[in-house]
Structures are given as structure tokens and as C-alpha cells.
Amino acid sequence: MRSHTRVHTRGSGQAGRAVALVADVLALVIALWILLYLLEANQGNGLVDFIHDAASWLAGWSYDLFTFSREWVQVVVGYGTAAVTYIVIGHAVAGWLYRR
């Protein structure tokens, strides 16, 4: 029975790491878009366009949550809210899986 518990714990730990990794990657994509925006990256570039599209999809629920008169603040807060949420929730779920 003890070996079964170890397997279950190991599986939960691996699942926790996977959830944390996914949350980090999602937040990284959003943070990369914020950085590219602030650095005024060429939005005609294919990679910049891809990152923008991915970040816009990931942050679609949070982008217009607050409105600001300055566009750069809107981008940082709108996208940043999503990035922080993914990290907080993702790592909370990962921690829960680690403890299982």
C-alpha cells in the first residue's frame, strides 16, 4: 500500500509541475507582449503579430476590465491582470496538487 501512495504522490507532483509550467508559459506570453508593446516593436512583424494575437486571446477577459486614458497603462494593466491571475491561480492549483 505504501508504494501505491508514493506513485499517487509522484503523479500529483508531476501534475502540479505541469500546471505551474503551463501557467508560467501563459503569463510569459502576455508579459512578452507587454514588453514588445512598450518597446514599440514592429507590429507588422510576424512574430510580434503572433505574440500579440496569443496575448490578446489569453487576456481577452481582462483587457477592458479597467479603462485608462493612456494607452500604455491600459496595455500594462489590462494584460498584466491576466498574467498575474494565471500565475496566482496556476501556482495555487499546483500547490494543491503537490500536497495531494
Score class of each variant (00 low, 15 high):
G80F: 06
W96D: 04
G46D: 14
H8M: 13
V22W: 02
V25A: 11
V25H: 01
R2S: 00
Y98W: 12
V48S: 13
M1P: 07
Y86I: 07
H8C: 07
Y37G: 02
A59E: 00
M1S: 09
A27E: 01
A41C: 10
Y79C: 11
G44I: 07
H4M: 12
L65R: 06
R6L: 14
T5C: 04
W33Q: 09
R6D: 10
V76F: 11
V19C: 08
L39I: 07
V19A: 11
Y86Q: 05
G16N: 11
E40Q: 13
A23C: 03
S69C: 00
G95K: 02
S56P: 01
W72P: 00
S69V: 02
D53I: 03
E71L: 13
L21R: 07
A82N: 08
L35T: 12
V88L: 14
L58P: 01
G90Q: 06
L21H: 04
L26T: 04
G80N: 05
R100M: 09
G44L: 07
A82T: 07
F68W: 14
I30L: 10
S12I: 08
G11D: 14
V48K: 08
D53V: 07
E40L: 08
L32R: 01
S3T: 08
L21G: 10
R2W: 12
G44Q: 14
H52Q: 15
D53Q: 15
L36S: 07
Y63K: 05
V25C: 04
G44H: 05
A20P: 02
L32I: 15
T9G: 15
S12V: 04
M1T: 03
V76R: 03
T67N: 12
L39S: 05
S69E: 14
W96S: 08
T5A: 13
H4P: 00
V7S: 09
Y63A: 04
W96T: 04
I89C: 05
L32E: 04
N42M: 06
F66L: 11
G46F: 09
S3N: 10
F50W: 15
F66E: 01
G16A: 12
G60P: 01
V29C: 03
L36M: 15
H8F: 14
F66P: 01
D53A: 13
W57A: 12
T5M: 05
Q43H: 10
A31Q: 02
H52N: 13
L39W: 13
V7I: 15
V93M: 02
H4Y: 12
H52W: 10
Y98H: 13
A54C: 14
